[in-house]
Design a protein around this nucleic acid. Structure first.
Lengths: 106, 106
DNA sequence: GCGCTATATGTTGCTTGTCTACATGTAGCC
DNA sequence: GGCTACATGTAGACAAGCAACATATAGCGC
């Protein structure tokens, strides 16, 4: 999958993946990989800045905890994040049908 | 629709729109608007550079003609462009199912 | 102890594509 | 002359994803 095709859609993916359970960055990367059937292998240089961005925007909250001597920053979806996710899903439906429509298959 | 969601997908759209008939830039912008049900209102600063990029990549060929005293640069899909379009369509199917899958609707 | 892998977080700087704003010119209408 | 539609294009700003780098712990095999 080409690199910048993802542009503008990563935020939605991250929000979706922490929807039901808070996760730390590393686990988010793994979850995206699993959920995409191996298609998404996102580098840390992509994901970590995105997490900070989403937290700054108020869509995620984070807490430090320590598991087995390793520090983890666990991210959870905020109320605003939940709202944003719903919005993103609606936008995705539009986007997807617009592109699909113009692209056609004929 | 957010701007950079389009990032990386515009090329596919442009190639698709000139698939069956060569069009000039202005007409391409209008065609995209019509075909997207009004969702895509692309500024010239987006489309014209994209056309030049696609021509430089060998996916489009262009010819100047004059209609009613106005100069037009008409773009047509090259053989390589046709191939690229097929490739883009396949990539879109993957992309779309990956994002849709991760996003879920549950 | 040493090297390796997996886990875990983060930054710097590059690149590239989209957009805003600007710039230019013709045709047709009032 | 002024307005709108048609038509092409450029310069510069901005943002996001990425590669590469930097750091540190845990656990395993030797």
């Amino acid at each position: 999958m080409r690199a910048d095709a993802l542009r503008g859609h990563l935020d939605s993916l991250v929000l979706a993946v922490v929807e039901h359970e808070p996760l730390h960055g590393y686990a988010i990367i793994e979850a995206l990989q699993v959920r995409s059937g191996g298609e998404l292998e996102l580098p840390t240089g992509t994901v970590y800045p995105a997490l900070r961005r989403l937290e700054a925007a108020g869509y995620l909250t984070s807490d430090w905890d320590e598991v087995g001597g390793r520090r983890r920053r666990t991210y959870a979806l905020s109320r605003a994040g939940r709202k944003a996710l719903a919005q993103h899903r609606a936008e995705w439906r539009t986007f997807s049908s617009v592109i699909g429509g113009v692209l056609g298959e004929a």
